[in-house]
Design a protein around this nucleic acid. Structure first.
Length: 477
RNA sequence: GGCCCCAUCGUCUAGCGGUCAGGACGUCGGCCUCUCACGCCGAAAACACGGGUUCGAUUCCCGUUGGGGUCACCA
């Protein structure tokens, strides 16, 4: 039997981080077993389902590189099939029409609340003959659930979970308007799609019992269930927007890499010994539901950043550069010249090891734009404001100007600057920091020698002269 | 509140009866060093509590406490 998993979000919002992890686990499990990973859009709630949400889910999965097998199934389009099953269940005596009015239901709810118990339908139409049906009222169809005994789920993550059938009431399968409820639709779709493993958030664990009853009533094979713990916010409460339960598009915009997000999500609630980093191949080979933790875990943005910076360092130029050019161009509001692109390409290794995110990389790349960063960072401005700094700039400029254009490289620049520092009786840092401020507009950057080498003699000298012109020395006392 | 689930450093976790309770992120020192990162070295930091079972419990059982989930003609 081939493994079939599915990711079944309702399109009422973006693809958030928890959903992304659920999708990842489903995808990994399917790939691990050479099976299929399907997407089902649960859009039966017409009021809340939107096309933008559907797009966000599909785009999000695509960005995360979790490709689905086959076309997505839209649950709403299968409404007739769901209704057909509901009626078959009535015919088989596993379900029955219920004519209880909204008012009666409200009374039942009030009554159970008064007793301090949860709401349970009292089954008043369960054994009524057809003749008792009031004229002109369309009934809802309810499951004739077992009243005694227990329903058991052997969950792949949670273990054996048992609930007394007396705890479960006769739930609605088909609404009075003929539309299916989620409980019915899920079961019918999972069965029809051949889903073998239902891997989802454990907020659905309670639903699994009710769904199992429908499977049993229909005589269908029960899929295996794996209810994975939810992701919580830093404060331990259910993850909300406030905590970073943003759409995956937001993480993309913050400059995170899909591989990093996948790796972070994989290690949230799952582990394989002490391993922290997994290639996609390793993740597929090693993923096992038995290693999924049963406790909820907290979302930690700092750790995500750390994982991302690891992937930033590992990434090759091909995955980093094109998008980086686009980000820089958006920042400066014009296309990059070939020279500028070449500088950023040459400077990439040093830049990427300093970047936690693509945004950091973009910001760092600005030193290679003609003229350098627009504004001088406060600390850099301070570095330039002393008379010593001005003489250091002058000494540096003189030393650099003496290097022939043909000999202009990092090694020659380093040698010239070290010599100049020695001649001036300065520690290299005293000479380098003002120069760094002049060249990069910052007190922190990749190697000064490398930056100057990449910038070339003309741009390098121009930036130093500009810094000299702009910074009137402040007298020191 | 009923039902269900969960419980190791601040966080993510390893552990599957006998360990100096390991790793990662973060934090704090230090090294490297033209700055910042990287890298390296080191430090502080956890078995929620109470009963059992056992020669021996972080590990098995029960309870307490705490946390979470769920209780619709929403999904």
């Amino acid at each position: 039997m081939t493994v079939v998993t599915r990711f079944a979000p309702s399109p009422t919002g973006f693809l958030h981080i928890g959903g992304a992890r659920t999708a990842l686990f489903n995808w990994l499990f399917a790939r691990r077993h050479g099976g299929e990973f399907k997407l089902r859009i649960e859009d039966t709630d017409r009021k809340r389902s939107t096309q933008p949400a559907i797009d966000a889910i599909i785009d999000g999965l695509k960005w995360l590189e979790l490709e689905c097998d086959g076309e997505p199934v839209f649950q709403f389009s299968r409404m007739e099939r769901h209704a057909e099953i509901a009626h078959a269940m009535v015919a088989a005596g596993h379900a029955y029409p219920c004519y209880a009015t909204t008012e009666e239901l409200a009374e039942m709810r009030a009554a159970s609340e008064a007793e301090g118990k949860r709401f349970q339908y009292d089954g008043r139409w369960r054994d009524q003959p057809q003749s008792a049906a009031p004229a002109g009222v369309r009934p809802a169809i309810r499951l004739k659930a077992p009243e005694t005994g227990q329903t058991v789920i052997d969950d792949l993550v949670q273990g054996r979970v048992t609930v007394e059938n007396a705890e479960l009431d006769d739930m609605v399968l088909l609404r009075a308007d003929g539309t299916p409820t989620y409980m019915l639709a899920v079961v019918v779709d999972d069965h029809d799609m051949g889903v073998t493993h239902v891997i989802r958030g454990d907020d659905h664990l309670n639903n699994a019992f009710r769904q199992a009853q429908v499977f049993h009533a229909m005589g269908w094979d029960l899929p295996a269930f794996a209810h994975i713990p939810l992701i919580h916010g830093a404060d331990g409460a259910k993850l909300s927007k406030r905590h970073g339960a943003l759409g995956v598009d937001a993480y993309r915009d913050m400059g995170f890499l899909p591989a990093a997000i996948r790796n972070y999500l994989l290690r949230l609630g799952w582990s394989h010994g002490d391993m922290e980093f997994f290639t996609t191949e390793e993740a597929i080979r090693l993923f096992d539901l038995a290693d999924v933790n049963r406790a909820p875990s907290r979302f930690d943005m700092i750790k995500l950043e750390s994982v991302n910076s690891h992937y930033m360092r590992e990434a090759d130029a091909e995955t980093l550069l094109p998008e980086n050019f686009a980000l820089v161009e958006a920042e400066i509001g014009r296309p990059l010249s070939e020279v500028e692109r070449q500088r950023m390409t040459d400077g990439l290794p040093s830049l990427q090891s300093r970047a936690k995110t693509r945004i950091d990389l973009k910001t760092g790349s600005l030193i290679y734009v003609d003229g350098g960063p627009k504004a001088l960072a406060p600390k850099a401005a301070a570095l330039l404001q002393t008379a010593e700094a001005q003489s250091a700039l002058e000494a540096g400029a003189t030393a650099l100007a003496a290097i022939g254009a043909a000999q202009w490289d990092a090694a020659a620049i380093e040698a010239a600057l070290r010599d100049a520092a020695e001649a001036e009786g300065l520690k290299l840092g005293k000479l380098a920091q003002p120069l760094r401020a002049a060249l990069t507009g910052s007190d922190a950057s990749p190697s000064l020698f490398e930056v100057a080498a990449i910038l070339g003699p003309v741009e390098t000298l121009a930036r130093i002269r500009k810094a000299q012109a702009q910074q009137a020395p402040v007298p020191s006392y």
